[in-house]
Design a binder for these strands. Structure first.
Lengths: 397, 397
DNA sequence: TTTAAATCAATAATAATTATTTATTGACAG
DNA sequence: CTGTCAATAAATAATTATTATTGATTTAAA
């Protein structure tokens, strides 16, 4: 078996790795802070001003940053702020959901520059790849050759073990089974030359929140995303931690409630499919909650009850999560209107007060800021983060 | 407010940091692998043979490694294995427990070279510091001046929020309250010049397991230690992750069982104080379980029942823990004889099969290997790890 | 003679240090 | 009011030190 050498997880570092690391540190500081002067970068990174100067020059030559107008009004040579050049990197995000799939183009500033969507009763490899095969050229046609060359890759945000939802999604067993051995990298490799980055959908959403939302002010937190099912992601030391197998933050699996009975996982206590079911029982139109553009006013009791039940279990989950890692906060977001999100967090905070937390500091709950599009934006952000930003401990060449 | 500058968590790196990092990588490879040839180190770390040669020469000059006898019998120049020099670093561990406190001296090979212990009904700062003040000179008196100079520091392994056990420990409220503002670093600084490293007791135990037990073959796992109360630690990317506040792996706080009722935390489901209570009720001598030297044969039903109950909740906890981070394994150890440990893990595996784990891979349970002394050995190991081994992402100067 | 480990010497990459340049504010003399 | 200069601070250039890699050499075995 060639290439099966034994190598320890953390390898040594060399000069190239050192420079690459420092460039990522500088890029990350600019990304998180926004426009910032080079002296300030030097202060924060503890790099010398000269080193920062050299690195910035290279980043500017690569088109990754732009210089702003000097800030006058103080003694001395005015500071020239540097900022990420929004068009410096473009990236594709491909989200596969239970009801919809999205293909988006995002820039370095997190702006969604294009979006294509499709809906289905349940996803199959054929349907999903057909959509991608048709959509990719349509999006790339809007770009210049130079812009196309700046695409960092395609980040696929896909739920864990798609083939295991049969019961809840009411899909054809045979067609769903096709997911089991499906190889995204190979399939996408056949229709495009972009680097493929595969990720759990909730981890992708977490990446979006980390880059553009609440995460900008936090360095260690758990992120819960409530979609058709609920899931999540984890941020450690200022970087998204996908985990050894890419399945860190699988909060849907958390046991909450009475573990002696079936259906005690958070998945079955705090997901939108439960609201869909409630609405159906109440004779309301459940599709309203999936359209995303409209508010949920007037849906009444089913929504109120769902918020209350979801919040109660979220509070328990927050305690469990913060028992494993002493997170700064638990950020909660999902595919619902912002007012529902606010009510959910408020209710969860209330429930949290009634739970014993001896042994840890009481978890802090925060509202997410990115919202329903987090998964596709985050999917697109993965290639950017992998190529240009801090990605945890790795430091080799 | 001087020194209150804004600095980002992950700073830049320079040459000194690079060398330090590579030295730690090499030391860690030797520590984890045992005696190993320099070519093999180069292969595993992806460093050049020359770099490894230079680094080894420096480590040898510092007395941290020794060269073994060349391995003849193959073509070419024989490999000379290098190994950690056991006496190259010494370190002190100071464990504060509910019933006992330990002061130990450990070497780089993990061998306990000296141990002093004291028991009490409950710990107070005065009692504990009095023990340290008397014990430290006694241990150091057995060392040469050169050996004393090789002490890396003193690692204190102490439970989280000692002052919060009042109800369970039946201690004097006033005396326990003294812990709240107690400053270990300052207090120990008054009686010794050693660097002080403070740690959660279970995190320390985790460090011992990682260095000398099961952890040698794993890079991402959770560690549960069942003592008077249960707690734990977390290993990510091959290094113990103490957490932002040092309280990662506080598994005692995990909600298990019916969260609507009080006492639903793992702490109150899987701790030795519960066994103590059972023995008392059954008319057995509960002190037998604290002596540590003897087996628990003949304690009968209370032990059997405790194992069964503990295992049931441990299984639930394992699912919760692996939902947060996709650990390779959950390693379980504690203050009990090895046969009890084996039965406990076996029972927990059985219970685990009956729990729904949709959304994650089923957790793998493993027996710990270090045992009851893990906390004090791990406490002593903390200074060694901090000064000489990989400690996660940090890479600055 | 072949093989492979270990080391030496030369080279290249990179960050820190020190010195210099640049660009501004504000005081003050004319 | 205006021109000049000191003070201030950012940014960069030149120099220096450190360190990993590359390629040659030595060493020690079968």
């Amino acid at each position: 078996m060639p290439g099966a050498e034994i190598r320890d997880p953390t390898g040594g570092a060399n000069h190239v790795g050192l420079r690459d690391y420092n460039e990522r540190v500088v890029m990350s500081v600019i990304q998180r802070h926004g426009a910032i002067a080079s002296v300030e970068i030097a202060r924060r990174t503890r790099l010398s001003a000269q080193t920062v100067s050299v690195i910035l020059r290279r980043l500017e030559a690569e088109g990754l940053i732009t210089r702003g107008t000097p800030q006058r009004g103080k003694f001395g040579k005015p500071q020239t702020p540097v900022a990420l050049a929004p068009g410096g990197v473009l990236s594709l995000g491909f989200k596969i959901g239970r009801r919809t799939t999205d293909l988006v183009l995002v820039d370095l500033a997190g702006k969604m520059r294009a979006r294509l969507a499709a809906t289905y009763a349940f996803p199959t490899p054929d349907k999903v790849m057909g959509f991608l095969r048709a959509g990719l050229p349509r999006i790339e046609a809007t770009l210049s050759a130079e812009e196309r060359a700046r695409i960092a890759g395609i980040g696929v945000a896909v739920p864990f073990e798609l083939w295991n939802w049969l019961d809840t999604v009411r899909a054809s067993p045979h067609e769903m089974e096709a997911w089991r051995d499906f190889d995204f990298a190979a399939a996408i490799g056949e229709i495009s030359d972009h680097k493929v980055f595969l990720s759990n959908d909730a981890t992708a959403a977490c990446a979006a929140e980390h880059a553009f939302g609440q995460g900008r002010g936090l360095s260690d937190y758990a992120y819960v995303f409530i979609g058709y099912f609920c899931g999540g992601g984890v941020v450690l030391n200022g970087a998204v931690h996908a985990g050894r197998t890419g399945n860190a933050g699988a909060f849907g699996t958390l046991p909450v409630g009475d573990t002696a009975r079936p259906g005690h996982q958070l998945l079955h206590k705090a997901s939108l499919y439960l609201l869909e079911r409630r609405l159906l029982e109440a004779g309301e139109d459940p599709m309203r909650i999936w359209r995303g553009t409209e508010g949920w006013e007037g849906l009444g009791r089913p929504v109120d009850d769902w918020i209350e039940a979801t919040a109660r279990h979220l509070a328990v989950a927050a305690v469990a999560v913060c028992s494993v890692i002493d997170f700064e906060a638990v950020v909660i977001d999902g595919g619902f209107p912002t007012d529902v999100r606010a009510r959910l967090i408020e209710a969860a905070r209330r429930h949290l007060e009634g739970i014993e937390t001896q042994g840890i500091a009481r978890p802090v709950l925060r509202e997410g800021a990115v919202g329903a599009q987090a998964r596709s934006i985050g999917g697109a952000f993965l290639p950017i983060a992998s190529e240009y930003l801090m990605v945890g401990a790795s430091f080799g060449t």
